[in-house]
Design a protein around this nucleic acid. Structure first.
Lengths: 360, 360
DNA sequence: GTTAGCAGGGTATACGTTTACAATTGCTCG
DNA sequence: CGAGCAATTGTAAACGTATACCCTGCTAAC
């Protein structure tokens, strides 16, 4: 009896010291008078355990303030419940929208998400490799093209059976065995360009992204296809490269404004650049859309609050995020058995006020 | 000899099967003809090993395509080299700028970063707790106030010695033992308000953030202080709550526009809302700054491309991010011994064109 | 030539969990 | 009442790494 009361005191003490950093399953087992296996089962497969012992164990857990050591669990189970998403830049509102979608799906499935940027501090292929190799993650979502780093990195990981899915980015043929979800960038860019053409524009320029970005490369392809189809020439110097940022686009736009044969419309590979473009045109004392029309791409949330509001291609960003995350989950659960057909989601041309009929 | 050549063949095969998922340190040791301890030392403390054996081991590593199991390492060492950052929303350009700073510091220090949002799907206190408890991280950076969830969560973790630092957010007294880095929000808001007053405004309203956000609460405090100091009244209904989003601000602004005693200037608790405010005013057929002046807060990169460009308070976002990450590192390395004095970084009023003298 | 010192490498244990397998208990049914 | 079976619990091994400790052999100082 005396002994028992001492025990109780000790328990109280343990309870007071709540959340000591070092309570392990062992102490819980001891306190509950069961084996560690039983404690483990109580937590992971409660149905495998008598309600009586379960109660004992739950009490002990409460008293010790025990919570399982996630590191040990990850180690033992071989999974971390963390997924990595690789994107060009967290600053781009479009990608953050996709991230939102990813995140809600991740939460639903019990995953945390680790974010890596490729754009920031231009990573080397080695760094990318190192990044992918550190198996702290159960899978990877690529929102950024890895092609600048060589796709071998990917196939290597693929061999290692680390699930990878691709979002937004068009998938190059050699990566066809990765699931992907994205819009039809070529068709969308074509649609944007055709809209300008339908408004009477003939001198249409483009501010595209870096060559390294497949995604924007596709948009350039769509633009060129539309121009060709309409029998319109693309003058030397009408396709200039921004770097997907406002500043880059301003520089690019200045070139277009000073072009001997100034375009009456500019198609930008994303809205971020369209905003830069818009601002640069206004800074030059020209007016949008009267002097130059602009079409953007992505329909970020700032697109409708610019002056004038931006005509642009809208992508279902959150939806892409959710879908891509679910695809990844399927890959994690079912292995390479899970389907790898690309999932094409619909885009939409959103007409606002940055396009008018040309005056010249 | 024959045996040897067979071995070689096997090695080649292993090399071909590069990156098999299951090469462990054991196989490397066997191939190199040393113990696993030596292999481990070669990797972690190369100076503790003869260059001859080091070479042997490195060869073996190359041939097997071995890379250490990060999960096992984390488990053994008790650290993951992952830090978590908790912020209200990844969509806000200000926070993504802070994230950039965090990320460069993290990269420099060899950390990955895990992101959690509080705003998205309103988390419950329990969820927050669970989030913090999963010890997959070596430390936490809080860019969002935890006060809506009760600060006990934090003190609990603190007891567990999980390093926590606070960024951007003003630190409430009971959390004073956490290091923090932020601007003086009250002073900055005062400065913004005083600028409006100096331009002749007397009817100044404010669009503030949710009550749950200490950060924006401080800005409201600064605004009120400046008004009081200038002897200006704050009419009933002049302080309206946005939710830090464009949409929320538009709703709030509509109320202000329709106020019986319409303000001639509006101070917004962040730029995101200032953009919404700006747009709503223009939608109502009024002009900025002629009819209503606007001052924002944060100086996000869109602030200079609005029409008119936004007068706002600039924070050194990237710098805050870097500093806060370094503070966290010090906490991780030195424990609670590391200093916990708040680090105040300078803000700056950036005058653009959204403020004019009042006409009425 | 002997020994202290030391550096390099091996042996073996521990980290906290999960789980296959063994052992025990309790129960049912003949 | 005992055999057999199912349900429950215990035992112990394993995951891959890092490291404390020990052993070996070499060098240098006397």
């Amino acid at each position: 009896m005396k002994q028992a009361s001492t025990d109780t005191a000790l328990q109280q003490e343990a309870a007071a010291a709540e959340e000591r950093p070092d309570v392990s399953i062992k102490e819980v087992a001891q306190l509950a008078g069961v084996s560690i296996a039983t404690v483990s089962r109580c937590i992971n497969k409660p149905e495998k355990v008598t309600s009586k012992t379960r109660l004992k164990v739950q009490d002990a857990i409460r008293q010790t303030g025990y919570s399982p050591n996630t590191l040990a669990q990850s180690f033992r189970r071989g999974r971390t419940n963390i997924v990595m998403v690789v994107l060009p830049s967290v600053g781009d509102p479009f990608f953050t929208a996709v991230m939102s979608g990813i995140r809600v799906a991740a939460r639903a499935k019990g995953y945390s998400v680790l974010i890596e940027e490729t754009q920031l501090n231009k990573m080397t292929a080695d760094e990318i490799g190192a990044m992918l190799v550190s198996n702290q993650t159960d899978g990877i979502i690529l929102l950024a093209s890895m092609s600048p780093f060589g796709n071998e990195v990917l196939s290597t990981k693929s061999k290692r059976r680390l699930p990878i899915v691709i979002g937004c980015e068009t998938v190059s043929p050699e990566l066809a065995d990765f699931p992907s979800v994205h819009i039809d960038n070529i068709a969308a860019a074509k649609e944007a360009t055709n809209y300008l053409i339908s408004q009477g524009h003939r001198r249409i320029a483009m501010v595209c992204g870096q060559a390294s970005s497949l995604l924007t490369k596709d948009r350039e392809l769509g633009y060129r296809a539309a121009m060709k189809q309409a029998g319109l020439p693309i003058e030397e110097g009408w396709v200039v490269e921004g770097d997907l940022t406002i500043a880059g686009a301003r520089k690019a736009t200045r070139i277009l404004i000073n072009h001997g044969n100034r375009p009456t419309a500019i198609f930008c590979a994303n809205d971020e650049m369209a905003i830069g473009c818009l601002h640069e045109i206004k800074s030059a004392g020209l007016r949008v859309p009267r002097d130059i029309s602009i079409v953007g791409f992505d329909d970020i949330r700032y697109a409708e609050v610019t002056a004038p509001p931006l005509t642009t291609i809208s992508q279902p960003a959150e939806e892409i995020g959710e879908r891509v995350m679910y695809r990844l989950c399927r890959r994690i659960e079912a292995g390479n058995g899970a389907s790898s057909t690309p999932e094409i989601v619909p885009h939409k041309l959103v007409i606002r006020q940055s396009v008018a009929k040309p005056t010249s």
